[in-house]
């Protein structure tokens, strides 16, 4: 797939602003560090020219921002969507979370986004980062300039990309890709083969690191409730639990369960977790179970789809059968 240049995006944004199609633009902007590219609203061609960023750190999925942004003002918002973002976009529309008329969606092709932690494994003195063709050039304080193949730095969700095809847009920049065959369930399958004790150990290790910053919830395009039990000081589940306690699991089971059938596996939760907890392994467990028990289902792939959790068949598996089904190949 061709590389799409920043110029193409900003020219498109400026044109759409100039001809009045939209009156603001949701895009990416530099953060404190080169790898902290952050979502921003641009109101003018000058702002776009100066601050708009398009590079390997534009991982942020803007779909959720539309819920609040479309409520401001009468004009349309221009939003740039990578293929995986369009699934969240569709899912939110299916749930009537924003007004489609208030949005102008431009699909951008994507070759995968970089996980800065993979760069930090190579050096701990990153000063700045450039992208040069297929390479990521890291300027460091102590290790000189490192030129690393970008392909080797991609985040997990991009290595295991589920689709390079846009499922919603008003206009597409460049060519569209295809739904991918990826190994995104391999790690879940590996865990399923472990003994219960090993699995418990694995998750205890992962989940006890959680600091309950709630970033995974806040970023999730499927989590758009105005009020959340995890903010309620009257509930005993607002804060971080003592280590070795159930509450971290309660939070994580409920977080993942809450988005069952609506989680598009966009990977935002794992991306933002400061503790590097592999939250996608929880979401994908539910997705894998749904695929196996109720037929393949990809949230957001079709507008108006009915999630399997709000549906049923007369001959569905019993819970005990569902739990025991994997036993023979364990």
């Amino acid at each position: 797939m061709q590389e799409i240049k920043r110029e193409i995006l900003i020219n498109k944004a400026k044109d759409l602003l100039a001809d009045g199609t939209v009156d603001r633009v949701l895009g990416w902007k530099a953060g404190e560090f080169d790898y902290d590219v952050t979502p921003a609203v641009f109101n003018s061609a000058d702002e776009i020219e100066g601050d708009f960023v398009w590079n390997g750190f534009c991982g942020a999925n803007f779909s959720k921002y539309l819920v609040k942004e479309t409520l401001k003002g009468d004009g349309k918002v221009l939003v740039f969507l990578k293929p995986c973002d369009t699934y969240s976009f569709n899912q939110l529309l299916t749930e009537h979370r924003f007004d489609r008329e208030k949005v102008y969606a431009v699909g951008v092709p994507c070759n995968g986004m970089v996980d800065v932690n993979k760069i930090k494994e190579e050096t701990d003195s990153v000063v700045s980062i450039d992208f040069d063709g297929g390479n990521t050039v890291v300027h460091t304080l102590y290790d000189g300039d490192l030129s690393l193949p970008t392909e080797k730095l991609l985040s997990e969700r991009c290595v295991n990309c589920k689709s390079k095809k846009h499922v919603a847009y008003d206009e597409l920049l460049g060519e569209d890709g295809e739904v991918c065959d990826s190994g995104r369930f391999d790690e879940v399958a590996r865990l399923e083969k472990m003994t219960p004790d090993e699995r418990f150990e694995f998750w205890q290790n992962e989940l006890s690191r959680c600091i309950r910053c709630n970033a995974c919830r806040d970023v999730c395009p499927a989590c758009t409730c105005e009020k959340c039990v995890f903010d309620n000081p009257e509930s005993p589940v607002e804060n971080k639990a003592p280590a070795n306690s159930f509450e971290e699991k309660m939070f994580h089971i409920i977080r993942a369960f809450h988005v069952v059938g609506r989680c598009t596996d966009c990977g935002e939760c794992s991306r933002v977790c400061p503790q590097h907890i592999p939250l996608h392994l929880l979401n994908r467990k539910f997705i894998k179970d749904i695929d196996e028990l109720y037929g393949e289902y990809q949230a957001g792939s079709v507008l108006g789809n009915r999630a399997p959790i709000v549906d049923y068949k007369l001959d569905d598996a019993e819970p005990s059968e569902a739990v025991e089904r994997g036993d023979e190949n364990a």
């Binding site: 699995r199 089971i253 993942a256 467990k285 539910f286 749904i290 959790i309 049923y312 819970p319 739990v323």
Partner: peptide
């Protein structure tokens, strides 16, 4: 609905060990 919901929940609990 209970049947689907609990199938998924119990399977997740099993997955967590």
């Amino acid at each position: 609905y209970t049947r689907r919901r609990m199938s998924l929940l119990f399977s997740m609990l099993d997955y967590l060990g």
